[in-house]
Each structure stands twice: as C-alpha cells, then as structure tokens.
Amino acid sequence: MIRVLKSRFKQGHRTFKFPDPNFPMPERFLGMPQIKESCSQCMKCLEICPVSCIKKSGEGVSIDIGACIFCGKCVAACPEKAISFNREYSLCASSRNDLVISPCMERKALSLRKEIRSLFGRSLKLREVSAGGCGACEADVNVLGTIGWDLGRFGIQFVASPRHADGILVTGPITKNMTLALQKTYDAVPSPKVVIAVGACAISGGIFRDGSEIRGGLENFFPVDIFIPGCPPHPATILDGLLRLIGKIKAGA
C-alpha cells in the first residue's frame, strides 16, 4: 500500500488544461493547409497527392482536408512554396463542403442542430464503431480516456452498448464487411442521436477511397453532425471537435 502511495506521489497530477491556446503541438505537426493567392496553378501538387484531394476550381487551388492524409508531399512538390500547413489543431467542420480549403477562405462557424447542445451539452455518451480503421484513429480516440486528457471531465464517455449511447463515433473507410454491423449499431442508438466521423477514412475513404472493398464516406450512410479530419487526427483535434459539438468550445474560440 505504501508502495502504491509512493508511486502515486511520484507520478503526480498529469491532467492538463484544455482547450489551451498554448497547447504544445509537435513542432512538425501539419494542421490547417494554407494556399497562397499567388499560386500559379501549375498543379504539381495534384500530381503527387496520393489521395487526389487537391483540385483546381474557380477560386484557385483547393485542398479537401476531409480526404487529406497530411503526408505533406504537396508542400515539398510546390515549386512556388505556395502551400503550407500551420500548426492549428482545430480542424473540424459541420458540413463536408467546409472541409475544402481554398486561398483566402474564411473559416466557417459550425452549424449544428440546436437540440444537440440542449440535450447533450452536459452529458454525451458515445458508441465507437471501427469500420475498417487501421487502429490509429481508434488509438487516438482511446487516448482521450487517459488521465492526461480526462475526457470524463467534459461529460463525454464511451459506453459499451449502443442502447446506452446518444450517438456513434465512426472511424475507418466503412468496409463492405462492416456495413451491416455499422447500420445495426446506428439503428440501435435511440433518437435523437449524433453522428461523428473521425479521420480521413471515415470522412471520405481516405487512402482507401478508390478500393473495391470499401464503401467510404460516412455521409453516404447517415447524416453526419461533425467531421474531424486527420490521418489520424491528433487527440487535440478530436477533443476540440467533440467539445465544439456540444458547445463547450464556442465559435470563434
């Protein structure tokens, strides 16, 4: 017992403040992409992009961070250094289109159903469904339960049955083999319910988007309340998305 207490003393209190404007993101973290208006649209970036998430449009070049795996190859390929990624971890959006980033685009505020905040603002129970994930998104969702992140303090908890849940959080490109299980889990959650897509795979199919074994894009199945991009998203990105969903982080913050 004394040994346990001694160890408890040594390990100390490790829960950190969140949200925190000075949150220590890794120096080389790739967050929100930024495209300079001066981009001449040579499209070298598109040629190298492994998920073809870069497009030429009326407003210039755009990057779809709902498909982007944040490999950074476009940054290296751009002869004009017109693409860069900042270290912003807050990347979520409530509409699929808002994930398409173009030059001088204003970040759109989330538009969420009103009932989400009133019903789930103080307590949100989620069922996680891994539908073809590589385990990385799952790991970084899981890590929110550790003492550092302490998800419970925000009233969010992952539960063991869809019957106990207020919504589902889905990772993975929705493999053919998980389609039925995902549908059944969704159906088993009582309404009204929230749907959260975490990671490039769940949002768009990610690196597997052209594969024959996946169905890709959670939106093809259910209305999605919030998209949290990344490959995998950093835990801070996921937590930020969850807190914005329930109104614990306000727009503009």
Partner: peptide, 25 residues
C-alpha cells in the same frame, strides 16, 4: 475480416504514389 480494405489487391501493379501510404496503414 471486418477490417478488410483490400490492401494487397491495391498494391498489385505498384509501386506508385499510393503504395507506401497503403503500407503505412
């Protein structure tokens, strides 16, 4: 088999720009 994403099938005909990312995942 629930997580089957068809990685080996997608790698046939490679290496290409996607191959390394398929292997990473």
């Amino acid at each position: 088999g629930y997580q089957h994403r068809g990685i080996e099938k997608s790698l046939i005909g490679g290496p290409d720009g996607r191959s390394i990312h398929l292997v990473e995942t």
